[in-house]
């Protein structure tokens, strides 16, 4: 079994807030739209409902701000927008993530090669 599943869960949890920031940073999004965008991406395996508490926390942390807007045909929508702090947090994560990802890739590649030469 190994720690695989648990590690992935932790990784998802750690990365999700920044993915949310990235999606909002692209353009202002309303809750339903945001949730659908995130849940359609395979890999995140989350209950859609749990994204709202995350959005709430990002707002309390001052990384996003929200406004209710009337929609032309549908119900009122709550739009999320990045704050300056949110944009800064996102930029910081993007750099850190690339470094981290490259480091992991490098290490995994080494392990793969040595594993192959051992014949295991």
């Amino acid at each position: 079994m190994g720690p695989g599943n648990d590690t992935l869960t932790q990784l998802r949890r750690g990365a999700l807030p920044h993915c949310v920031l990235a999606v909002i940073g692209e353009q202002d999004r309303y809750g339903f739209e945001l949730v659908k965008l995130l849940s359609e991406r395979s890999g995140f395996e989350i209950s859609e409902g749990t994204i709202y508490p995350l959005l709430s926390r990002l707002r309390r942390d001052g990384l996003v701000e929200t406004t209710w807007r009337e929609s032309e045909s549908g119900p009122p929508r709550r739009y999320y927008r990045l704050t300056t702090d949110g944009a800064r947090a996102l930029a910081g994560f993007q750099i850190a993530w690339v470094e981290f990802r490259d480091a992991v890739d490098d290490l995994l590649a080494i392990t793969e090669r040595s594993g192959a030469s051992d014949g295991t």
């Binding site: 932790q10 949890r13 750690g14 807030p17 849940s39 209950s47 859609e48 409902g49 749990t50 709202y52 508490p53 995350l54 709430s56 926390r57």
Partner: peptide, 23 residues
């Protein structure tokens, strides 16, 4: 179904109250 049970959603909200980002 996609949302998850109310209890799951509330548990997530409770977890977000903890400063720990990892939830």
């Amino acid at each position: 179904d996609d949302l998850g049970t109310p209890e799951t959603v509330v548990a997530a909200a409770r977890a977000e109250l903890v400063p720990d980002e990892a939830g």
